[in-house]
């Protein structure tokens, strides 16, 4: 049995377990994703910052105590879809037992931004970029597969994972890739490129099973916009 100090955590998913407990899938700052058993049937909230006291073996953690560590983030309307999208991405891709302090901070900041009504697209793209980096597959904007720095005047193809290949008939403009490297997500063309690239890169890691939360962004009634 290993006892450790409380960790910063968000609940990604909670499943009732027997009559008096929860099985929690947690996003922790210093251990990445872990699953823990939590005895107690009080409400457990998603998007609520917690301090979690964890104990036990690697594969079967017990959450001894779950203490509220800040105000719950209220995501309403279509922002609720975006919040579920973040959790689905983390639940599907975040590795177990890795330090994820930086991504944890980005996740928290993204939720705060969504709650505050900050434009969602740049927030999501920034989060996706950081998630790919956490996976060890951050997109390399510094140089192409041949080791040459990216040039504004050159065109490129994306390898579907994290590298670019210089190609005269490539669909990607070098200048937009360089703008994306510098996070100029406020420019519509850069934001569109980021969406296209990150979606491809994430699909590479997600495999054949598509994201359920993406279905939510497809609306049928004209005039009711959506974003993802």
């Amino acid at each position: 049995m290993i006892g450790l100090p409380p960790v910063n955590a968000f609940v990604l998913q909670r499943t009732p377990y027997r009559e008096d407990s929860w099985l929690l899938r947690l996003f922790t700052s210093d251990r990445g994703q872990i699953t823990a058993h939590y005895r107690g049937r009080d409400a457990v909230y998603l998007y609520q910052p917690y301090h979690a006291e964890l104990q036990g073996r690697d594969d079967w953690q017990r959450c001894q105590h779950l203490e509220i560590a800040g105000p719950v983030l209220r995501l309403t309307g279509q922002r609720a879809y975006l919040a579920l999208y973040l959790n689905e991405l983390c639940g599907r891709l975040l590795p177990r037992w890795v330090n994820a302090e930086s991504l944890f901070g980005t996740y928290y900041a993204t939720l705060k931004g969504l709650q505050a009504g900050t434009p969602a697209e740049p927030l999501l793209r920034y989060f996706e970029r950081r998630l790919l980096e956490q996976l060890g597959f951050g997109i390399d904007f510094r140089e192409d597969v041949a080791g040459e720095p990216l040039h504004a005047a050159q065109r490129y193809r994306f390898d579907g994972c994290n590298r670019f290949v210089a190609a005269d008939d490539g669909e990607l403009e070098g200048q937009l890739l360089l703008a994306l490297q510098n996070n100029h997500l406020d420019q519509p063309a850069v934001a569109l490129l980021a969406k296209h690239l990150f979606r491809q890169a994430l699909s590479y890691h997600l495999g054949e099973q598509s994201l359920v939360s993406r279905e939510l962004f497809r609306t049928r009634v004209p005039g009711k916009g959506s974003q993802s």
């Binding site: 409400a43 909230y45 998603l46 998007y47 995501l75 309403t76 309307g77 279509q78 609720a80 879809y81 919040a83 579920l84 939510l216 609306t219 049928r220 009634v221 009711k224 959506s226």
Partner: peptide, 17 residues
């Protein structure tokens, strides 16, 4: 009243006129 319920209600709302 949790986020999943809110998202479900929003999804239904988004689909109807």
């Amino acid at each position: 009243t949790q986020v999943e319920g809110e998202a479900t209600a929003q999804y239904i709302a988004d689909q109807i006129g």
